[in-house]
Design a protein around this nucleic acid. Structure first.
Length: 840
RNA sequence: GCCCCUGUGGCGGAAUUGGUAGACGCGCUCGACUCAAAAUCGAGUUCCGCAAGGAGUGCCCGUUCGACUCGGGCCAGGGGCACCA
C-alpha cells in the first residue's frame, strides 16, 4: 500500500459510483430488518447548495450510515420543495420560465449533493412541482373538503394594488409592498382555509408525547396554539333594538367582573358594522382603525383608540349597573368573542384606555382585604391576590373567584366556562402561478364545485406571461374557462394556488410510499412512519412542523393513515455563519477581497482598512458565503463533512473557518497515513485494546445522541493513541475498527483505506463495532486527594480499593501532612474510585 | 410587555448522578527533519508569579466536606410571540 497523499478528488467520485452501482442505499419496503427512517428537511431549489444544507444533510447521513451499520433497513430519501415565489421572481427578472429555472436548479443541486457522498435512496426522489406529486395533493384537498376540513371564508389580506397580489406580512415593509413600493391595502378576499383549529386540542396534547423533540420547539408550538381557559358571557343591551339585543365577550379573568367599567367591540364586530351603516361617524372611526399597518412594530406603537357608541349594556350581576359600549381599535375580531369587558385596574390595555377616556379604575384584587381602598396607580395590577370590592366574591382568592363567577353564570344562564385559542385556521390560497392549482371550479349556479377526482391533476398551464403584475393564471386567455363539473354551464376555475407549506406537509409520507394511483399506501406508509429522526432548521419550528402534524392527524381522522405524529424525533440544527467584512464606505466585502495584514484586515484591491463585522448567517447580500463546490474541490467531501460535524455542537451555530477546514483535511490525511502504515506485528496490546473499546462505547453513545462534535473528539484521541502504539495485532485491529467508526462521517476515505487494507466488501456495509464490556472496566484508577475540597495530589489505586485504605493513603500523603501540619483531620470524605477529601 | 435559551482560555468547545475544570480542535510559541520551504513529527500553551503558591467557569449571595453543575437575586447576549382580553 502506498503512503502517498490521499487523493480525495479521485477517490470520492470512485466510491460514489461504486455505492450507486451496487444500490446499497436503497430501502426496500419488504425487508426483515428493523426499519429506520431518517429525514432532513428537503431543500427549496433556489440555485445552489449552501453550507447550511451540507451541514444538515451530513448530520442525517451520519445517522443513516450508522443505523445501517447497526443492521437496520434505513430509509433516507431526498427531494425538492419546488414550488414558490423565487421561481416567479426569477421569471419576472430574467424572462425564464419558473419550471425551467426550477428544474435547472434541481439538476445543479442534485449534482452538488451527490458530490457530498450522501447515502440517499435517489429512487424515491420527488419534486413537489411535478404533476405526479401535486395531483395527489389535489385529491387530498378534495377529501379534506368532503370531510369538512376545508372552508371558504372571507379574510383580510395585505393587497398590493400595483402587483395585484396578496402579500404575506413579511413582505410588507413600512406599510408598502416589498417589490412595488405601493401602499398596501387591507382587502377582504374569499380564501380557502384548512380547519387546523379543529385539531387545536389534539395538536396541543400530542406535544406531550414528543419526548424526542427539543423542549424549545414544543414550547413554541404550545404558545402558538395558545390555549386560554376563561369564560364567555353575554351582555344585554340596556335598550335593545331589533337585531341588536346582546353580544358576547370573552375573558380569562371572570373574577374581576365587578371591576368592569366599560365594554368594547372590535371595529369588525357585527354590531359595530351595523352601527356604521346608519351613523357616518362610526363608519369614519372604523376606517380610521383600519388605516394603521399590520406590522408588529406599528401595532406596538399604535395608540389606544376608542369610540363611544352611546349604547349601554347591563352588568350581568347587577341589573341596575350599566356600562358604556365602545368600539376600540385594540380588540381583535378573530380572538375570543371579538368583544371584551374592560377592567382597567387589572389589565394594562384597559388601563391605558380608561386613562385616555376618563373611565373609572376600580380595584377588585388586592394583596389583602386591608388594601381594598388602595388606589391603582401607574399601571394595572395583573397579579394574584384576594378579591375586594366585589360583593359575594370578597375574600376569595383569584382562582376560587373565577370558578364562582363561572358557576353563577352557568346556573343563571348568562355565561359559561370556555376555552379560547390563539391558533387560527390555515389560509392556503395564494394569488400566484408557481404552486399547486386548487381543484375547484366556480359556477354561477352551483357555487364552488370540486373537480372530479378522475379529472385530476389540474395541471398548471405552461404558456404564461410574467410581464404584467398579478396572477398569470388569472390572466391566461383560456385556462380558467371550463364547464361546471356539476351542471355543465360555463364556469371559472379557481386561479389561486395552494400555499407551498401544503406541499411540505405530506412529502415525508410520499417518500415512504409512492403508488401512482393514490397519495400513498396506508400499510406501507404506516410501517415506515413516523420518521424516526427528522433534522432541519429551527426556523420551521412552528409553521412547517405544525402543518405537517395537522396534515398527518387529518389523514388519520379520515382513516387513511395509522399514525398520529409524523416525526417521532426532531433535531434542529444551527446555522453556518461566517465573519463579515465591510469597507469604510460601507460596501460588503467577500473573504477573498480581504487580506489580514499586521495592522488588521485590509481590502486587497485598495489597501484601505476593513471593518470586521458581526459573525452572521451566510448570505449573498452580506457577501460571506463560502461555496460548497469550491470547498469540496479543494479539500474533498470528507474533510468538509468532518469539519461541519466537528467544531460546534450541532444545535448551535457553526462558524465557518479556514483553519477548521484545514484541520479536518489534515485529519483525513492522517487517517490515510495511519491505515497506510498498517499494523504489522503480532501480540496483544492490552492498554490499546482498552482504549479502543472505550472509544467504541463513547462514539456509539455520542452518535446516538447526535453529539457529533464529541464523537469526533473521541476519534481524534484514539488516533493519537494508535499512532503512538507499537506494532501489534491489537494495533492492526484498532486501525480497522477506527475506520469503521469514522465511516459514517468520512465515508470515502474510510472506504479507500478499507480497500487498501485488503478488506473484503464495502465498509459502507460493514457492521458497527461492538464494545466489549470486559474491556471497559479499568483495573486501576486515579484518586484525587483533596484538602478542604482543593486538589493537593493524585495517586493511583486499584479499582475497588477499600475506603479505609484510601483514607489511610490520603492522611499519610506528604502534601496532606504538610497542610495539616500535625493537626488531626476533622473529617475524611471518601468517594470510592474517585477521590478522598480531608477536611481540616 | 410575555415566554424561552445561553454565558467556561486568544477562539470553537469538553466535563455520568454535585467529585481532579479547560478533553478535542483552531491559533500561537519553541524544537526536530530540510540547503531552504511545504508537509510531518515532538514539547508547551487558563491567568498572576522566577518559584513556592495563589486566583479562576458573566456578577453577588446561599446550600454542601466539595458547585461550571443545585437554590435566590442581578447583568449581558440571543431567540420566539406580540393589543390574544
Amino acid at each position: 500500500m502506498s503512503t502517498e497523499r490521499y487523493n480525495a478528488g479521485e477517490a470520492e467520485p470512485k466510491w460514489q459510483r461504486v455505492w450507486e452501482e451496487r444500490g446499497i442505499f436503497a430501502a426496500p419496503n419488504e425487508d426483515p430488518r428493523p426499519r429506520y427512517y431518517v429525514l432532513e428537511m428537503f431543500p427549496y431549489p433556489s440555485g445552489r447548495i449552501h453550507m447550511g444544507h451540507v451541514r444538515n444533510y451530513t448530520m442525517g447521513d451520519v445517522v443513516a450510515r450508522y443505523k445501517r451499520a447497526r443492521g437496520m433497513n434505513v430509509l433516507h430519501p431526498m427531494g425538492w420543495d419546488a414550488f414558490g415565489m423565487p421561481a416567479e421572481n426569477a421569471a419576472m427578472a430574467n424572462k425564464v420560465h419558473p419550471k425551467t429555472w426550477t428544474y435547472d436548479n434541481i439538476a445543479t443541486m442534485k449534482g452538488q449533493l451527490k458530490s457530498m457522498g450522501l447515502s440517499l435512496d435517489w429512487a424515491r426522489e420527488l419534486a413537489t412541482c411535478d404533476p405526479a406529486y401535486y395531483k395527489h395533493q389535489q385529491a387530498m384537498f378534495l377529501d379534506f373538503l368532503q370531510a369538512g376540513l376545508v372552508e371558504r371564508k372571507v379574510s383580510k389580506v395585505n393587497w398590493d394594488p400595483v402587483d395585484q397580489t396578496v402579500l404575506a406580512n413579511e413582505q410588507v415593509i413600512d406599510g408598502r409592498g416589498w417589490r412595488s413600493g405601493a401602499l398596501v391595502e387591507r382587502r377582504k378576499l374569499s380564501q380557502w382555509f384548512l380547519k387546523i383549529t379543529d385539531f387545536a386540542d389534539e395538536l396541543l396534547d400530542g406535544l406531550g408525547d414528543l419526548d424526542r423533540w427539543p423542549e424549545k420547539v414544543r414550547l413554541m408550538q404550545e404558545n402558538w396554539i395558545g390555549k386560554s381557559r376563561g369564560m364567555k358571557f353575554r351582555f344585554r343591551l340596556a335598550e335593545p333594538r331589533p337585531g341588536m339585543e346582546s353580544f358576547e365577550v370573552f375573558t380569562t379573568r371572570p373574577d374581576t367582573i365587578f371591576g368592569s367599567s366599560f365594554a368594547a367591540l372590535s371595529p369588525d364586530h357585527p354590531i359595530a358594522l351595523a352601527l356604521a351603516e346608519t351613523r357616518p361617524e362610526v363608519a369614519a372611526f372604523i376606517a380610521e382603525c383600519k388605516r394603521g399597518g399590520t406590522t408588529a412594530a406599528e401595532l406596538e406603537t399604535a395608540e389606544k383608540m376608542g369610540f363611544d357608541t352611546g349604547l349601554e349594556v347591563v352588568h350581568p350581576l347587577d341589573p341596575d349597573w350599566r356600562l358604556p359600549v365602545y368600539i376600540a381599535n385594540f380588540v381583535l375580531m378573530d380572538y375570543g368573542a371579538g368583544a371584551i369587558f374592560g377592567v382597567p385596574g387589572h389589565d394594562q390595555r384597559d388601563f391605558e384606555f380608561a386613562a385616555k377616556y376618563g373611565l373609572p379604575i376600580r380595584r377588585v384584587v388586592a394583596a389583602g382585604p386591608e388594601d381594598a381602598g388602595k388606589p391603582i396607580a401607574g399601571e394595572a395590577e395583573s397579579g394574584d391576590g384576594v378579591l375586594v370590592n366585589s360583593r359575594f366574591l370578597d375574600g376569595m382568592d383569584v382562582e376560587s373567584a373565577k370558578a364562582a363567577v363561572i358557576a353563577r353564570g352557568e346556573a343563571e344562564g348568562w355565561g359559561a366556562g370556555t376555552i379560547a385559542w390563539r391558533l387560527r385556521d390555515w389560509g392556503v390560497s395564494r394569488q400566484r402561478y408557481w404552486g399547486t392549482p386548487i381543484p375547484i371550479v366556480h359556477c354561477g349556479a352551483c357555487g364552488a364545485v370540486p373537480v372530479a377526482k378522475e379529472a385530476l391533476p389540474v395541471v398548471l398551464p405552461e404558456d404564461v406571461a410574467f410581464e404584467l403584475p398579478g396572477n398569470p393564471l388569472d390572466r391566461h386567455p383560456t385556462w380558467k374557462h371550463v364547464p361546471c363539473p356539476r351542471c355543465g354551464a360555463d364556469a371559472l376555475r379557481e386561479t389561486d394556488t395552494l400555499d407551498t407549506f401544503v406541499d411540505s406537509s405530506w412529502y415525508f409520507i410520499r417518500f415512504a410510499s409512492q403508488p401512482a394511483d393514490r397519495p400513498f399506501d396506508r400499510a406501507i406508509a404506516s410501517q415506515w412512519l413516523p420518521v424516526d429522526q427528522y433534522i432541519g432548521g429551527v426556523e420551521h419550528a412552528i409553521l412547517h412542523l405544525l402543518y405537517a402534524r395537522f396534515w398527518t392527524r387529518a389523514l388519520r381522522r379520515l382513516g387513511r393513515l395509522d399514525i398520529a405524529e409524523p416525526f417521532a424525533g426532531l433535531f434542529t440544527q444551527g446555522m453556518v455563519t461566517h465573519e463579515t467584512y465591510r469597507s469604510l464606505d460601507g460596501r460588503w466585502l467577500s473573504p477573498e477581497e480581504v487580506e489580514v495584514g499586521a495592522a488588521g484586515p485590509v481590502e486587497t484591491a485598495t489597501g484601505s482598512a476593513v471593518e470586521t463585522g458581526r459573525i452572521e448567517k451566510m448570505s449573498k447580500s452580506k457577501k460571506n458565503v463560502v461555496d460548497s463546490d469550491v470547498i469540496v474541490d479543494q479539500y474533498g467531501a470528507d474533510a468538509t463533512r468532518w469539519f461541519l460535524l466537528s467544531d460546534s455542537p450541532p444545535e448551535r451555530d457553526l462558524e465557518w473557518s479556514e483553519g477548521g477546514i484545514e484541520g479536518a483535511w489534515r485529519f483525513v490525511q492522517r487517517l490515510w497515513r495511519m491505515a497506510a502504515q498498517g499494523g504489522g506485528g503480532d501480540g496483544q496490546d492490552q492498554p490499546l485494546e482498552r482504549r479502543l473499546h472505550r472509544t467504541i462505547a463513547a462514539v456509539t453513545a455520542n452518535i446516538e445522541s447526535l453529539a457529533f462534535n464529541k464523537a469526533i473528539a473521541n476519534l481524534y484521541e484514539l488516533a493519537t493513541v494508535i499512532e503512538k502504539a507499537a506494532p501489534s495485532a491489537s494495533r492492526s485491529a484498532a486501525v480497522e475498527t477506527m475506520l469503521r467508526l469514522v465511516a459514517p462521517m468520512a465515508p470515502h476515505v474510510a472506504e479507500e483505506a478499507w480497500a487498501a487494507l485488503g478488506k473484503n466488501g464495502l465498509i459502507a456495509r460493514a457492521p458497527w463495532p461492538e464494545a466489549d464490556p470486559a474491556l471497559l472496566v479499568e483495573d486501576e484508577v486515579t484518586i484525587a486527594i483533596q484538602v478542604n475540597g482543593k486538589l493537593r495530589d493524585t495517586v493511583k489505586a486499584a479499582k475497588g480499593a477499600a475506603r479505609e485504605d484510601l483514607e489511610a493513603m490520603a492522611v499519610e500523603n506528604e502534601n496532606v501532612r504538610r497542610i495539616l501540619a500535625g493537626a488531626a483531620p476533622k473529617k475524611v470524605i471518601v468517594v470510592p474510585d474517585r477521590l478522598v477529601n480531608v477536611v481540616a
